[in-house]
Design a protein around this nucleic acid. Sequence first.
DNA 1: GACCAGGTATTGC
DNA 2: GCAATACATGGT
Length: 271
Amino acid sequence: MVIIENIDDFDLSETFNCGQCFRWNQTADNTFTGIAYSRVLNVTKEKNTLILRGTNVEKSFESIWKSYFDLDSDYKKIKLHLSRLDENLAAACQYAPGIRILRQEPWETLCSFIISQNNNIPRIKGIIERFCQLFGEEIEPRFFAFPTCETVANLSLSELEPIKCGFRDKYILDAARKVATGSVNFEVIKNLPLDKARSELMKIKGVGPKVAECTILYGFYRLEAFPVDVWMKRAMGAFFPNKEPSYFGEFAGVAQQYIFHYSRMNPSFFE
DNA sequence: GACCAGGTATTGC
DNA sequence: GCAATACATGGT
């Protein structure tokens, strides 16, 4: 068990349920169990104390979870900066002030957001869960790692059929094959300017601007990336007319997350 | 049963 | 170039 005191600006439910990740489930009050980096973690928050439980969590805290939960970033400062930029953005920050951007694995992020296209979040989670159960390593009884791109690269379309991902099956295989062979190279992409990183990822079939942007933001922790989906289009029209992503500056991706969640939880804004 | 879901590729003008 | 349409599946 690892106990970290004095954690502010972090709410587990807001962070896990704001649409950035798909493998965390609530297992008790203020308690979630999930899988990342091929490890199972149980995380609880009581007031300002974060409690992590899991196999070897004492060791993996420093190497993985501290970074995964972005505990070294000052979200109070980021939110203050964003709130001074725009009063509608300030309202979005206040709506769910405990959201943090998770530092997720690039391959899992890419694959998850390929699955997300023209799809809804409950079904996305179901597809990903079946995908992991069928092709991921069972790291603990009934808990499965995300399948490696090498494993997926060697699958056929018919083997992918049971996950019921529909027309996205061919996109998943193309992504896995390009990443596994290195024709799309994450080590290169992570250091590329945003527009180059985007076009590299878009060499994959089924990866357009939106999926590329989500991969860059969540998978590479590039906070200036600004994914625009149907919800963000609505929100931009209603709250930020005639504004470009650059309006939100170096933390545009964080701003996007507050705005996206605020909009999705309040669909009546757009009636 | 239509309509929609954190889009993208393809087609038609 | 840019607007329309198909795409698998399941929830509302």
